[in-house]
Structures are given as structure tokens and as C-alpha cells.
Design a protein around this nucleic acid. Structure first.
Lengths: 215, 215, 215, 215
DNA sequence: CATGAATGAGGATTCATTCAT
DNA sequence: AATGAATGAATCCTCATTCAT
């Protein structure tokens, strides 16, 4: 119970604190929107002093980045559960399950989803350390790899067109399905499309799968 | 007639000035991003005083809204040219041409495209007059209608599955293709997908069309 | 019909214009309050260009000063009518009539009254030419002189205490009655006093007159 | 107990700071007038950063309201001292002492007096929280109640006309005496009356008392 | 004379970040 | 480690006044 135990406890407490702040930040971002969220609000929600926030996160953007990481991890869980490596599922089934899982994520974790959609361009990259940026990229890739794996399996099984790379199939599916959710996330555009998200999402999924099966 | 000429000149000058400010705003938004853009920057870029901006636009958000309208008009031109009502084109060709036009718009008018993507949620709706919001909605619809018309034609010609509504087809196509562009607009996500936008875009288009032709 | 006639017409038009602006200013001040009134509003209400306002008045404060003059003139009319020089009225009656006239002015010309109350301290004196200031002072005196004259008459008639100067009596009456109106002009203070203005005004008047009759 | 001592010290420091800002604000308001006073000036006078002001007061108007409260408290001290509950004084003496105390307040605390006079109409009520407004009203009432109590005593003692309510007497006296001070607070009007404030004030007081004694 | 577009010096308020305790 | 008071640059917007036409 010497130094090591103590420091490990310390480390754990530190992690707890970080998690506490992240949880508070997530709530605040969700409640008032990312733009209107302030460090004061986050500190107040976490019931700690404002200065303390800066002991755990260098900048406000860093908090966002870490939240994004959390979101990516959560999404990854959804996706791996859907992929269900240990089960005997064919590729197309896996793709459908993955698509359904993404939709679940969109519905059950709207705050994470909004967060992931909200990073517009440059601003973000500039204000976060390269290491963190790299990390986000890596974690994002894991999700896409699930889809690519399922696609690869589908190609092997002869259910998808052979002349397309699995990786490309994954990108196309993700882009198209994500596109549905992006559009319907925006009130203006949702009014525009006038269709239920679910129906639109299912339509794009089926059409894409059908198109991919085609010779 | 003198008066009329004068007032029409006045009107034109006023419009020019508005255009000048909009052009400056567009540049500023493009250079530093919407969030970091300030009215000062816009005024400086337009080489006018800050107060002058407020002679032409009630609010910073109003400038954004007008830029959005400009963007929508520009897009509409691209789309109507592609549709080419006077020509004898079949529905599927029209859909392809519309998709290509949207891609052109994305490439040739990146600032407008970014702007259209960047409106995040509620904040916008709140800070713009209902009339302006309505106008934006209306103009947005025009673009979608082009796609819907082409889809309708395709269905009539028997090239697309008959049991889907044209409106729904349009929504699906737009969502999917827009999804490709959204993803590739974001540096992080572009790195992720690792594919050339063009190839991805073409892939989704062909896959969707192929899927829509399917029985 | 030479130069002279023309210039007199010019002069008249100029006066008309001035009156037009003053009327507009009065309405605006009354509608939105002095602090919130802007030159734009005044010009809009007068249906002339903003620059034109500055052809007739050097500054916004000058407009206020001229409005004040108008108000003083109006008040003076009320007072001279009440005094009714040509009639055979005793001093005390005249004082009562003057008091009633001041109350009428407060009720029938609330905008002028508010204006007269609203000049707080130094700001005003600084921002108006000495000549104009002198003029205002002079016009204000005329009103007070009416009261002093009536008081003088009352003293002569033996109805008021002889050992007080008429001028002082006038000052005291004006101060006391004006005090009632000032207090009840302010919402906070009106809530405070909880009495009807009219009753309070009458009470002070009778009490003062009664006190002044006393040995 | 350590904690308690600390937090009580904290609280005291916080109150001190608030007092510091209020003192600075009072000086600024007095020097340049309420309208011309800016938060920058207040911060500069207090030798703190502009943002710090907003740690202690939500709004510029709130500062004014708190100054007003300070002024009302100060006035209340003057009045209760004059009333001197523990002493055996008759009602009329008390009224005279209260009047004298109000005059002292006017002379010794001119900035507070000016402040109390300067709240013009609605603007104020709108820009302050209802609670604060209520508080101001309450505190204002305390002063008036002193006067009403003395009047009540006078009526009981048979020195004042029995058929008038004490509350009404208080209102009349306050209105009349305040009227004197209002008029003489304004340079323009002071010039007008041409009398020494003190003499005018005494005259109105005596006349009112005399009138109130009358059958 | 009249216009009204242009000006630009403020003004109130916010908020990420720092730092003495 | 934790605090939270202090900072001050930044932001949007206003409006009295000027001046070229």
C-alpha cells in the first residue's frame, strides 16, 4: 500500500474528476447548445470551481474533443455489439445491423450525435493538440472498419459486387446514411424533406444495398 | 421620368452596396469561418464603416441569411441549367445531370456550399425574421423540386421503381449525395474516408440509381 | 412683391418647418420617452430627411429646448386665461384658478409637462446656447409672475398675511403644488403615496391657502 | 469554525467590494450625471477591470438601484434619529424635526438626493428585477411612515385637524417639501425662484403646519 | 434648400483564461 | 489540488452628426 497504491488511487480520482467534468459538459452542451455553453456553466453543473476545470483540460475546445472521443467510444460499442463477431452472421445481415445500430446511436445518444456533427471545419483542428487530433482520427476509423469488415465479408460471400473494394463500400454506405441523419438533424432541412427520418433512412439503406448487390 | 430614373439609380446603388457587403461577408466567412467572423471584419473587408453595415442589414445573422439566399439562388441556376427543360432528356439522364451540377456547385462555389452546411440548429431560426426564414425554406424547396421532377419523369418512363414516390426518391438521392459532400467537407472526416470525393460521389450516385432501377 | 415679400414667405415656411419638426419631436418624446428618442425617429415622424432636421436645429438638445419653450408658452396661456385680467376677481380666487389651470395643464398636456420635469440638472445647461437658456429662463418667469401678481392682490386685499412678500408666496405655492405633480408623475412614488393626485393636490392647495391666511 | 470564519471573511470582502464599486459609481454619477456615466468610468474610478463590475452587479441599472437603496437607508437613519422614538416629543415637534432632517439629507447627501430625484419613469422599472423594485418600494415606504406616525400623534394630541387622515397629511407634507427641494435642485428653476432654498423650505413648512392646525 | 448615405466613437455586456491564496 | 475573484480583449449594435450631391 505504498507509493504505487496511492498514486493509482490518485490517478483514479483524477480520472473520476475528468469524467465528472465531461459529464457536466455533455449536459450543458446538450441543454444550451455548443455555442452558448460556457465554462462557467460546466463548472456549475459539475459543482466545482471554474479554475478546477482548467486543471484537467487545457482549453474549452479540449473538453469538446474529449467529449467527442467519448462519443466515438460509445458509437463503437453500438457497432461492435451489432457486428457481433462471435455470432455466425452473413455480411449483409451485419451491414443491416450496423446501419440499425448507427440509427439507434442517433436516437439514443442525440447529444453525442449532435456533437459529432457540430465540428465545423478548421476551427476545431487548430485549437486541439495534434496528438488529440490523431487520437480522434484513430477512434473514428475503428467505427468505419467495422462497416468495412462486414462489407468485405459480403463481397467474399458473393452478395455484393466483387469489383468494388470493401473499404469503398463502407465509405459510401456511411456517407449516404450519415447524410440522411445530417439532413434531418437540421430543422430547416427536415421541414424541407418532409419525410420521416426512419423511412428515409430505411429507403437509402435498402436502395444502397440493392444497388450494391447488382451486377 | 427624371425622378423615376433617379430613384431607380438610387435603388440600384443600394443594391450594389448590399452586394458589396455580402461579397465581403462571404469572403470573411470563408477565410475565418462563420463563428470567428465579426462585423468589424466584414466592414473592413468592404472598406466601409461598421455602422454602414447596419444600414443595409439589421443584424449579423441577417447577413448570413442573405448570403444563404444568394447561395440557394446560385445553386438553383446550376440545377435548372442541368435540368434543361427545353431539351429532350430522359429522367435518369436528368438525375445524373442534376447530381453532376450539385457536385459542380460544391466545387466551384465552396464558400456557398460551406455556408449552407454550417447553419447549426435552432440558433439560426431564432435570430432571423420569420419572413426571411420562410423565404429561405421556399428557395431551398425549389432545388429539391428539380430533383423530384426528374425522378417523376424517370418513374413515368419506367426506369425507376414504380412503387416509390418521386418526392421520396428525390429526398433519398439528395440526402445520400449531400452526405458524401458533408463528410468530405470536414478535414477530419475526409482523412477518414481516404477516398477521392469524386469517386465516392460517383459511387453513391451509381449505386443509388442502380438500386432505384431494381425491381 | 419684391424681395421683401419673398423673404417673408421664406421666413414663414421656415417657421412652419420648424413647427413641423417640433410637433414630430413632441410626439416621439412622448411615445418612447426622451432618452430613447432618436433623431431618426423624429425625422421619420416629420416625414423629412434626417439631415433636414439639422438645418433647423443645431443639435438634438436644441430641439428639446425649443419644445420646452413651446410648453412654457402653452402653460402661460393656461395661466393668463385663468388669471383673466379683465374680470373682477379677488386675489384668492385668482390663486385658486391658477392652481386649477396648472393642474389642467398637467392633465391635458402631459407631454409638455413630462418634458418640463425631465430636464435633469447640468446636462441641459451645457448643451444649449446661453441665449436659448436665457430665453427659457425668461419665459419661465412669466408664469411665476402671474402667481405673484395674484398673491400681491391677495395681500393688498388683506386676505393673505401681510408680512410675506408676494414673490415668496408665489414661490412657495408653486413649489408645493408642483411637488405634488412631480411625485405623482413617477410610478414608484405614486405607488408610495397611494392617494389620488387630485385629492392630494387639492389638499396641499387648501392647506397652503389656509396657512397663508393665518396671522 | 475555520470554514465559517473563512466564509464570513469572504462574505465581508465581497460586501466591501460591492461597497467599493457603489462608492465609485456614486462619485461618477455625481460628477458626470447619471446619463453620461458609463460602466468604464465606474470601473476606472474603482480601479478595477470592467468585467469585475459585472461580478457584483448584473447590470448598470442594478448598480443604480443599489445606490438608491443605500440612499434610502441613509435617509431613513436621518429620519429615525429625528423622530427619536425614545424621547418625549409632541407630534408637531416631531414633524418639524423630520422636515429639518430631510433638509439636512438634501444638503449633506446631495448625491443621494440627486439620485433619488433622477429616476425618470418607466425605464427604471423595466430594467430592474421585480424583487429589487419591490425592495425599493418597501424602503421608500419606511420613510413616509415616520412622517405618518408623527402626523398621527399630532392629530391625537389635537394639534392637527382631526378630519384628515395621518397618511394623507404625511403625503401632503412630503410632496410640498420635496417640491421645494426639487425645484431648487434644478439650476434653471433655482434661478427662477430667486429665493434661498432654506427660506422657501421653512416658509412652506410653516405654512403647511399652520394650515393643518386650522379648524 | 433638402437629402440620406456614411461615419466612427462609444456603450453595455460576455467569457475564456489566469493566478494569488 | 482546489478555488473563484479578477481580468480585459472582444463583440454586437446605436446614434448624433456631417457632407457630397
Amino acid at each position: 500500500m505504498g507509493r504505487s497504491a496511492t498514486s493509482s488511487r490518485r490517478l483514479k480520482e483524477k480520472e473520476d474528476r475528468k469524467g465528472l467534468i465531461l459529464a457536466a459538459a455533455r449536459e450543458v452542451f446538450f441543454e444550451v447548445g455548443i455555442r452558448r455553453a460556457t465554462v462557467d456553466m460546466i463548472a456549475a453543473k459539475a459543482e466545482i470551481a471554474k479554475g478546477t476545470v482548467y486543471l484537467y483540460f487545457q482549453t474549452k475546445e479540449t473538453i469538446l474533443a474529449h467529449l467527442l472521443l467519448e462519443g466515438l467510444d460509445t458509437l463503437h460499442e453500438y457497432l461492435t455489439n451489432a457486428f457481433d463477431e462471435s455470432a455466425a452472421l452473413d455480411g449483409e445481415t451485419r451491414l443491416r445491423r450496423l446501419a440499425a445500430a448507427y440509427y439507434d446511436f442517433y436516437q439514443l445518444e442525440p447529444d453525442y450525435f449532435r456533437l459529432m456533427m457540430a465540428f465545423d471545419r478548421g476551427q476545431f483542428q487548430e485549437s486541439v493538440s495534434p496528438e488529440l487530433y490523431e487520437l480522434i482520427l484513430l477512434r473514428s476509423l475503428r467505427g468505419l472498419r467495422c462497416v468495412a469488415d462486414a462489407a468485405q465479408q459480403g463481397i467474399h460471400e458473393g452478395r455484393l459486387r466483387a469489383h468494388v473494394e470493401a473499404r469503398q463500400v463502407a465509405g459510401m454506405l456511411w456517407a449516404a446514411l450519415n447524410g440522411v441523419l445530417v439532413i434531418t438533424s437540421h430543422p430547416l432541412r427536415r421541414e424541407l424533406v418532409e419525410q420521416e427520418v426512419e423511412k428515409l433512412y430505411a429507403g437509402v439503406l435498402e436502395t444502397m444495398l440493392s444497388g450494391l448487390r447488382q451486377e
